[in-house]
Design a protein around this nucleic acid. Structure first.
Length: 510
RNA sequence: UGGCGCGUGGCUCAACGGUAGAGCACCUGACUCUGGAUCAGGGGGUUCCAGGUUCGAAUCCUGGCGCGCCAGCCA
């Protein structure tokens, strides 16, 4: 037997569900809660599932109980083994474990069938011969009651016989259906004799052809179809596209599991349906990444700098801190030479007010390297700046001046002779509005600029073997993660998130 | 012209009959070898409206108004 989970510290404030569980435990009604996460294996898990996973597994953990993973696989036409595998991988990646408590609704088909038989025997269910259209027409409307099916009052014996023959495969799809006998006039549409079983001659991914009738379930889940369409119609790179709000997509984009868990905690549990600003997720993710991600230098839009007083061919290795938030992360060597790449937007020929970076005649610090002063900007025939001629101050090695002078800006840089090129993919919101599809056409709201490809960014050489799963910070730019498309010699990075940028905000206001 | 759920700062939510709070966002200052991070401070609410119960109502009651979900042989 798998042991129950070890209790962890409960969150500071309890939501109403945890209140109920705590009260039940205190009153001795239960010793340890058993929760469940019941996905249907018809797609990839998304951020909404992540919240549910954190809730159910989280409660189990906090109270020393356990959480069952139960697949609701009752629709053979939409479900696939691939989804079962990826769902399990995603839950584990988030940091949760169900041990041996893995279940499938399909394991209980026989039991479910038995219950259905009992309902029939008790007069609570009947076999209906109406067509789907007829059933819809007789269900009534929001304001008008439905009407009884002509088959509603069959004898128990006849119902039992028909239901057994449904199972035996004597009928075609749609010929019969098993319905609960409740109230066709109920103001609650869900109570107007809901369908319990339908005939589906299809091969189930687990039970094969053992069954041709399948039970119905009564949840509702708006997102699924929505994401599926994006995938099947080729609007994104797949279920794990970094723009997709799936767990696999967030992981590929570089979001850490801890950030997603913290988000789930932060949004808490409300009784009503809730939506949340993406900013909150971003905030939690930045909070984790700021503490944990190694710093690296990468230039997205390279501008050549030639250090004219630097001897040709000379290379120095600068000692650069890996993470100022975490001294134990140590330092690394980064080569520095006569020719460098800096970010094009870090130079302005005519600097606007409050622009602190490089400009003709101005001195800046190259992070953990030297101070440089721009002497000249070289332009091509169209007047575009193509190269900067600068001089460095040998006394400022490491980034500090003996005379104590402090430049107003510190720039990231990459040695041109050692740089490794990489494709970098920048992401923006998948949709141009928070309620995509509200006007009826989901695809009309797709953001055409949700992905921008930078074909040749220049990265420091240590990034040449960036391992998958490691999100790094490109200093001053944001967080980046190697994409699954990345190969040695053909690196691909995803921008996870930008850093907050008060200069960009200033510009946006102007 | 039905059922269920819900209306609290810009956003998402707390407050469970006893001084309306938090996080995010925003603004200001300090600090800084990332215009990042961090720290300190600040602006912001007739709790949808109208009645009622109560010493006291965001909270309970009544009636409005508004929003969401529900009419698959999907889950």
């Amino acid at each position: 037997m798998t042991e129950n989970l070890t209790p962890t510290d409960p969150p500071e404030r309890r939501d109403f569900i945890r209140e109920i569980v705590a009260a039940d435990v205190a009153a001795g009604r239960v010793t340890a809660p058993v929760t469940r996460f019941p996905p249907e294996p018809n797609g990839y898990l998304h951020i909404g599932h992540a919240k549910s996973i954190c809730l159910n597994f989280g409660i189990a953990q906090e109270f020393g109980g356990r959480c069952n993973l139960r697949f609701d696989d009752t629709n053979p036409e939409k479900e696939e083994q691939e989804y079962i595998d990826t769902i399990q991988r995603d839950i584990r990646w988030l940091g949760f474990e169900w041990g041996e408590h893995l279940h499938f609704a399909s394991d209980y088909f026989e039991q479910l069938y038995g219950w259905a038989t009992h309902l029939i025997a008790g007069g609570l269910a009947y076999v209906d011969d109406q067509s789907p259209d007829e059933i819809r027409e007789t269900r009534g409307t929001l304001t008008a009651p439905g009407t009884d099916s002509p088959w509603r009052n069959r004898s128990v014996e006849e119902n039992l016989d028909l239901f057994a023959r449904m199972r035996a495969g004597e009928f075609a799809d749609g010929q019969h259906v098993l319905r609960a006998r409740i109230d066709m006039a109920s103001p609650n549409l869900n109570m107007r004799d809901p369908t319990l079983y339908r005939i589906r001659h299809a091969t189930h991914h687990r039970t094969g052809d053992a069954w041709c009738i399948y039970p119905m379930y009564d949840f509702a889940h708006p997102l699924k179809r929505f994401l599926l369409r994006l995938v099947t119609e080729g609007r994104v790179r797949g279920w794990d596209d970094p723009r997709m709000p799936t767990i696999s997509g967030l992981r590929r984009r570089g979001f850490p599991a801890e950030g997603i868990r913290n988000f789930a905690t932060a949004v808490g549990v409300a009784k009503s349906d809730s939506t949340h600003e993406v900013e909150l997720l971003d905030h939690e993710v930045r909070d984790v990444l700021n503490r944990t991600s190694p710093r690296r230098f990468g230039v997205l839009d390279p501008l050549k700098v030639v250090v004219t007083n630097w001897p040709d061919g000379r290379v120095e290795t600068m000692d650069v801190v890996n993470n100022p938030e975490d001294p134990s992360a140590g330092t690394r060597g980064v080569p520095f030479g006569r020719e460098l790449w800096i970010e094009r937007e870090d130079f302005a020929e005519v600097p606007p007010p409050k622009f602190f970076r490089l400009a003709p005649g101005r001195e800046v610090r190259l992070r953990n390297a030297y101070f440089i002063t721009c002497d000249e900007a070289i332009k091509d025939a169209e007047g575009r700046v193509v190269e900067l001629r600068c001089t460095y101050d040998p006394a400022t090695r490491g980034g500090d001046a003996p005379d104590g002078r402090r430049p107003k800006a510190t720039l990231h840089w990459v040695s041109a002779a050692h740089a490794v090129p990489a494709e970098v993919r920048l992401y923006d919101h998948l949709f141009v509005r928070p309620d995509p599809g509200a006007d009826g056409d989901l695809f009309a709201d797709l953001n055409p600029a949700s992905e921008t490809i930078v074909p040749e960014a220049m990265l420091e050489p240590s990034l040449a073997e960036a391992p998958l799963g490691q999100t790094v910070q490109f200093e001053r730019l944001g967080y980046f993660a190697p994409d699954t498309d990345s190969r040695p010699g053909a690196l691909v990075f995803n921008r996870t998130l930008t850093l907050k940028d008060s200069w960009a905000r200033l510009q946006a206001r102007a």
